[in-house]
Design a protein around this nucleic acid. Sequence first.
DNA 1: TTCGATTTGTTCGTATGTATT
DNA 2: TAATACATACGAACAAATCGA
Lengths: 252, 252
Amino acid sequence: MADTLAAGSLTFNPLYKEVKIRLTRGLAGGEWKPGDAIPSETRLAERFNVSIGTIRKAIDELVAERILLRQQGRGTFVATHTEDRTLFYFFHIVGKDGSRELPVTELLSFRKARASAVEEERLRLARGAPTFRIQNVLKLGGKPVVFDEITLPAELFPDLDELVFGGREGTIYGLYQARYAISVLRISERLSAAHPSARAASLLELAPDTCALVINRVAYTYDDTPVEYRLSWVNTERHEYLSDLWKNDGPK
Amino acid sequence: MADTLAAGSLTFNPLYKEVKIRLTRGLAGGEWKPGDAIPSETRLAERFNVSIGTIRKAIDELVAERILLRQQGRGTFVATHTEDRTLFYFFHIVGKDGSRELPVTELLSFRKARASAVEEERLRLARGAPTFRIQNVLKLGGKPVVFDEITLPAELFPDLDELVFGGREGTIYGLYQARYAISVLRISERLSAAHPSARAASLLELAPDTCALVINRVAYTYDDTPVEYRLSWVNTERHEYLSDLWKNDGPK
DNA sequence: TTCGATTTGTTCGTATGTATT
DNA sequence: TAATACATACGAACAAATCGA
């Protein structure tokens, strides 16, 4: 009785929307962690006192949003940032020849800083909130292609330091997820073109006065909470930014 | 009997996939035109000899791909390029202040030409196939922001000429759809940064040596057939390219 | 290897709610 | 008001994949 859905919800959402909200709440709250299987559809149907079809419809939407992952015969799993499938979803730089590979990230600098005006706005932070500011060079085929500056709200990444960041295994978003229970679910990017600074140009091995692609990224987790701001400079002599709208069927 | 699905399909797709294929075939073949309502779910269920749930699942996917549009109480409609919803889906330039408006397109030149090597490859054309090449300037807030060069396979646009193109009502993709029965369903864009040509710079009111954003777009219709190649130069002093992955819930 | 239990995938059918005309 | 259309929800049966005994 305590868990019956139909009652108690003051906003009159359809049942499957309520189920979706409750599942999302469980995911955001850590009841099921990345890589875990959530309970089977049968058990969820019992728990929420709805039919299995209603459960399926809720899960359908979470799968479409890449938050969950279904596998016939095995179960339904919380998506992780260690699956090939997910990796390319957040990395859009491809070779002009069509080649796709994951970058090797080299840490340049790690320091604490106060949020700038732009960062405050994008990350919805208080004035001068403490942040970490991390610079990287991303290499493809051994050559530098992207120069990154990442800004993180210090509050969300308690014990982060240069060693933790540099010593991680896997991707940066994998680190957020594994160590800080922060899952990046969505990113929004704004692109423009500009001359890179002298430092950026030299890091990217760009001749003086060459143009670079500028990417302003904000990464969001549950409830559209921003968790990372990232400014990237891309050498587009041999690479491009791919925006595919949309081949989202995913593999298999 | 003639229309029973389960039989006859040599590839063992699920029923709803077969239904989806047949619906797509009807759409591509012009049985239902943009803006038309397709038959009701009940009638489709009778016609294909499957349950209504199977029909719904097929339509679900076509709606997710923005090929169809459902409206409770009214019916299910073939998407058109005249709906506000659709318009911004293919136009990604936004003001840095967050403003979103549709551009005013001004025709600069219209001529016939042989496909270049790049165009042949992107449009899957034979060597030196005849094409139309159209240049435009797109204005936002009265100021030029984008300089376009569109390449179209002449074969697909039989009687196209400068008057038809310039005299259209609505958007360019609206013209393709209304006059040539070509619906753009998906685009793929590759972005880079470069110095614009002197002509492009002057059209975009860019100071010499300023950088511009370069967009390589290919537009596809049913069956992933490419129908348009477009090279755009963007003045990113006051505007940006927005890549939102993904807020695809759509309005309402 | 085989078998059985478990889990998701597909398909059917039915009933009722809600929006539109 | 009545008819029609899509939306939600339920339940049942079987198929297909997975995994461990």
